[in-house]
């Protein structure tokens, strides 16, 4: 995990910072330079909710190399309201509990770590509400 690559996304991963289009009101997470809905380039800062509902999910059993020791783990796409969805892992949840429509909230968790000497990478996972 490259430190600058990790560092520059902190505002989103730690604090869910987003932007809201001044023209059409669309909330963008992560922020963008141009609104895909109305092409406006003027935004105000906002934050996405920390509560949402699961729209779909899976359980990753064959993970990419950096998640070998975590598998199997559930991953979901969560609707946070305001037309914002995020993809994240589901923590503290048994596979059989997972359901579309399940209410969840985002918690601060360690997402990745690089061996025993690389940086620790934090971010959000959702947990059953």
């Amino acid at each position: 995990m490259s430190a600058p690559k990790y560092w520059r996304e902190m505002a989103q991963r730690y604090r869910f910072e987003a932007v809201k289009c001044k023209k059409c009101g669309r909330v963008l997470f992560p922020p963008r330079l141009v609104c895909p809905a109305c092409k406006s380039r003027e935004f105000e800062n906002t934050r996405i909710n920390d509560k949402g509902t699961i729209e779909t999910y899976t359980i990753v059993r064959i993970p990419p190399s950096q998640f070998t020791d975590e598998a199997p783990y559930p991953v979901a796409i969560v609707n946070m309201g305001d037309n914002v969805r995020v993809l994240c892992q589901v923590a503290d949840c048994e596979p059989e509990e997972l359901k579309i429509g399940m209410p969840v909230r985002l918690e601060f968790r360690k997402i990745q770590q690089e061996g025993s000497s690389g940086i620790l990478a934090y971010g959000y996972k959702c947990v059953p509400e």
């Binding site: 020791d69 975590e70 892992q89 923590a91 503290d92 918690e107 601060f108 968790r109 360690k110 997402i111 620790l120 934090y122 996972k125």
Partner: peptide, 16 residues
């Protein structure tokens, strides 16, 4: 703690 929890993550949640 779960493998994704440590002193930092728990401190953040307690502070929230």
């Amino acid at each position: 703690p779960s493998p994704d929890q440590d002193t930092i993550t728990m401190s953040v949640e307690a502070t929230k």
